[in-house]
Design a protein around this nucleic acid. Structure first.
Lengths: 228, 228
DNA sequence: TGATTAATGTACGAACTAGTTAGTTTAGTC
DNA sequence: GACTAAACTAACTAGTTCGTACATTAATCA
């Protein structure tokens, strides 16, 4: 919009370098996804504007339709990308070598921090839930990924039960659900909660408290009374 | 849109009844709010369509602007209404006369059920969080209301500490936060969670389990180990 | 080198959408 | 029964927004 210089001045210097890639499909794609993700996370599917996304991109609106077909296609790609990025971060977590009690604390603390650091991801999940998960159905890749999280909990829980520190009969999926609830809510409902009760829950002090509370809560739920 | 009969046929029978109100400001307002609430809850602020809302209303589009000024004004009114309806339901809960342990269980169970029965409210809160609570700032009425929930917990918690069944040093606001997290997430993230893990968390059996888990979890967090 | 395909820019249009204008009907009042 | 303010309607407008047609440049291959 601002005249960007590319059209008129590009003959002077840029084309002199022969090895410099002037067409970069992968880069363009990635750039579009990045911009789109943050716009969708900020404004939702209906609220995000294709023209706005295009303008913030190094590419043009034409490229969005070239690569992603339509707005919904772009949204689905952004959603997939959000899950992929977050999963890659989680994959680095190694708690299976730790003693169960310590591993559990580490897992909850990590999840709390991880969610907190990926607000855009949380927002994308919120938005997708507003749409009742309609769009993620198009993406078969998503499901398989998250089962790793359950496996991780299943393994640590089984070890804890075997060692006699965790009480028996709980369901790893439900434990994951509880950890998710505490860590997700912390990001998703910050704004309304803080406003309704006049206390900034995202402040450093409050986050330290809420984090410790989440760890304690899951710990007390799992551990046998004599270990509390 | 469908010719509704009012214009042409109204002389035949309708006007014969003298006491039948043909102008009904309160009713019109209420009707608009009701329709708008469900449209906003379903589609979000940007996704909802004024024309769509108008059409589902007994009134016309002009009336929306007549009573609410603009789309955002209508949204804020719908948000206020959602909080008011839910608060009125909660006010009926009387747990302060119960023994602390029983009162706590009752409170968590009630909150779980109440959230579950008011999905539109949960969706409105999600949407408002997507907007970072921007619009609820316009509504000073909202804050005062919710403090009652904290007071309720504060009272039952203090009683439990005095009786020696709850451990000391916890913060009622944080307890409320935890209860909210577990009960809110149950509704807000149903779609994505169920899809990612291939298990319908909203089924009757799973809801019974999750409800009991939430109660247990809060109970174990509050109670002294010897009462667990 | 000339032909073919992939990638990109520009300009535009059709449909939609929030909000308005201009006017009518109803309920209550003097 | 005339008058006024509130309640209400239908049709319209100005601006937005998704998506596309057409042209062009870069890479690839025969």
């Amino acid at each position: 919009m601002r005249g960007g210089g590319g059209g008129i001045l590009s003959n002077t210097e840029d084309t002199k370098q022969p090895s410099r890639r002037q067409q970069d499909p992968e880069g363009t794609r990635r750039n579009i996804i990045e911009v789109a993700s943050s716009e969708f996370a900020l404004n939702g599917l209906a609220g995000a504007r294709i023209d706005e996304i295009a303008e913030k991109t190094r590419a043009s609106k034409r490229m969005i339709y070239y690569y992603f077909g339509d707005k919904e296609g772009l949204y689905v790609s952004a959603l997939e990308n959000a899950y992929r990025v977050v999963r890659e971060g989680e994959a680095e977590l190694d708690i299976e070598s730790l003693p169960p009690l310590e591993g559990l604390r580490r897992l909850v603390g990590f999840t709390f921090d991880h969610h907190s650091e990926h607000e855009d991801f949380i927002r994308m999940v919120m938005i997708e839930n507003i749409h009742s998960g309609r769009y993620m159905e198009r993406s078969p890749a998503l499901r398989a990924v998250n089962e790793a999280a359950i496996a991780r909990i299943g393994s640590i829980y089984a070890k804890g039960v075997a060692e006699g520190v965790f009480r028996d009969g709980l369901d790893p999926l439900e434990i994951h659900w509880q950890i998710s609830a505490l860590c997700f809510f912390n990001v998703s409902n910050r704004a309304t909660f803080s406003h309704l009760f006049g206390r900034d829950m995202s402040s450093a002090e409050n986050q330290v408290k809420l984090r410790q509370n989440a760890i304690d809560m899951v710990f007390r739920y799992l551990a046998k009374p004599e270990y509390i």
